[in-house]
Design a protein around this nucleic acid. Structure first.
Length: 426
RNA sequence: GGAGGAAUGGCAGAGUGGUUUAACGCGGCGGUCUUGAAAACCGUUGACUGUAACAGGUCCGGGGGUUCGAAUCCCUCUUCCUCCGCCA
């Protein structure tokens, strides 16, 4: 949720930012309406406070009168109390409706893009921030896409996934299953080396948590929901891990906070079918190691760069051709202020696959979660939150299989061999 | 799933209708003393809202109610603990 304070104090920057996101005019107009409503809220609140102070005063006087036995005088004051209460009741209603208006509309406004975010409408307008070195690999004519490689080497089974669960669920087996486990351990170890605390969170979360990181209300349809217990299956570890710090006031400046977690991720991905979602390209359940940072506002963009380097290091060790995109305003997620996507080139599919998304949310999530710290002056200030995938497994798996095939089998990159226990798949 | 108990400041813990503007203690911060530290002593120490700054208002797990007045009484929800049942 955008801070009302920012809406008020930096209205021009907010509007310019929303234009980068191509927000419709009527949504931009909300800003002025929210501020006006907040003005009203303030004035009603201060009038009501005066009446409440009067009530407190009267209650005290009545108490004193009862003590000294002056019952008739007390009765007179009681009448006055009920008159004041009438007024307060109306003010309360007015206040509640103003607050509701502010809340309901504020939650519909996306995060304000950082000044470096390019303007643009869709994925085509994303900026190539960095192209990995070297030419893109070219494979032999008979190179296979990963779904065929999986069949050839018995690595995972789509049909069994369908049989057991449904379309979009994968059953990994043999060296495929082992490769999954190897990747998870590799990613976790790399995160640990970089100073991240390893977390194993719950996979089902309540509505408060889903709201805290911004999945609710706007992405409700993307999540699986266990109705009987009102719990959501997590779409990413970001949700439970970031919510560790919901309603937290950090005492000393305990920055930087570095957390990582491996979890399965569940996404309904309603409505996405077709060639581009074949094989591992898009599935309902996948594994991912996620990095989460909670940081001082002044440091958050330096931290974002640091996270980019971490993810880049992983791809280099896996010997995968990659590029880094800076997402344009129109393609960026609702809650993000700036996002970098990592894409890996699949030589067999001859296309780029998104394998990681690294974002700075600034105070957007922290505002919803009331995640604050005490600054030197003793004020409570919202912290900044960031997260990034490091990495999501299915497309990494796809790219590994496809790019490292040589006709005789699949070569396992050096860095992964201690984890797989084998150096090739044949 | 059944029965009972509990939820108060960073922690611990009093408080069962009116100077509670929440006691005492621990911890934190500042000071005295000291070469420095410890100990001792003195002072200070919640969040939110609001104001130019005061003032004022709200908050004792959440929500609702009774009352002139609620941490305290009532209803409801949630969570935790104990016992029983079930169980990887």
């Amino acid at each position: 949720m955008v801070e009302l304070r920012i809406l008020r104090n930096e209205t021009e920057r907010v509007i310019a930012g929303y234009k980068k996101r191509n927000l419709p005019e009527e949504q931009i107009a909300l800003i002025a309406q929210i501020i006006a409503k907040d003005d009203l809220r303030k004035s009603v609140q201060s009038q009501m406070d005066i009446e409440l102070a009067r009530l407190n005063q009267l209650a005290k006087e009545i108490g004193d009168l009862f003590k000294t036995g002056k019952k008739t005088e007390a009765e007179v004051l009681k009448n006055e109390v009920s008159a004041v209460k009438e007024i307060v009741k109306k003010q309360e209603e007015e206040l509640a409706s103003a607050k509701t208006f502010i809340e309901e509309n504020l939650i519909q406004l996306p995060n304000i893009p950082f000044h470096l975010v390019p303007a643009g409408k869709s994925a085509e307008d994303n900026e190539v921030y960095k192209q990995g070195s070297g030419p893109l690999p070219v494979l032999a004519e008979d190179a296979l896409p990963h779904w065929d490689l999986a069949k050839k080497y018995d690595l995972f089974d789509m049909e069994l996934g369908v049989k057991i669960s449904g379309s979009g669920f994968i059953l990994y087996r043999n060296k495929g299953a082992r490769l999954q486990r190897a990747l998870i351990n590799f990613f976790l170890d790399e995160a640990t080396k970089a100073g991240y605390e390893e977390i194993q969170p719950p996979l089902l979360v309540n509505a408060d948590s889903a709201r805290g990181t911004g999945q609710l209300p706007d992405k409700e349809g993307q999540m699986y929901f266990a109705e009987k217990d009102e719990l959501y299956l997590i779409p990413t570890a970001e949700v439970p891990v970031t919510n560790m710090y919901r309603d937290v006031l950090l005492k000393d400046e305990k920055f930087s906070i570095r957390l990582c977690g491996y979890t399965p991720c569940f996404r309904r991905e309603a409505g996405s079918y077709g060639a581009h979602v074949k094989g591992l390209n898009r599935v309902h359940q996948f594994d991912k190691v996620e990095l989460v940072r909670i940081e001082h506002p002044e440091k958050s963009y330096a931290v974002l760069d640091e996270m980019l380097s971490h993810v880049e290091g992983l791809l280099l060790k896996l010997e995968l051709p990659y590029r880094i995109l800076r997402l344009c305003g129109g393609d960026m997620g609702f809650t993000s202020a700036m996002t970098y996507d990592f894409e890996v080139y699949s030589a067999a599919q001859k296309r780029w696959l998104e394998v990681s998304s690294v974002s700075n949310f600034e105070s957007f999530q922290a505002n919803r979660m009331k995640l604050r710290y005490k600054n030197e002056k003793g004020d409570s200030v919202l912290a900044h939150t960031l997260n990034g995938s490091a990495l999501a497994l299915p497309r990494i798996m796809a790219a590994l299989l496809e790019n490292h095939q040589d006709g005789n089998g699949i070569r396992i990159p050096e860095a992964l061999r201690p984890y797989t226990g084998f150096d090739s798949i044949r």
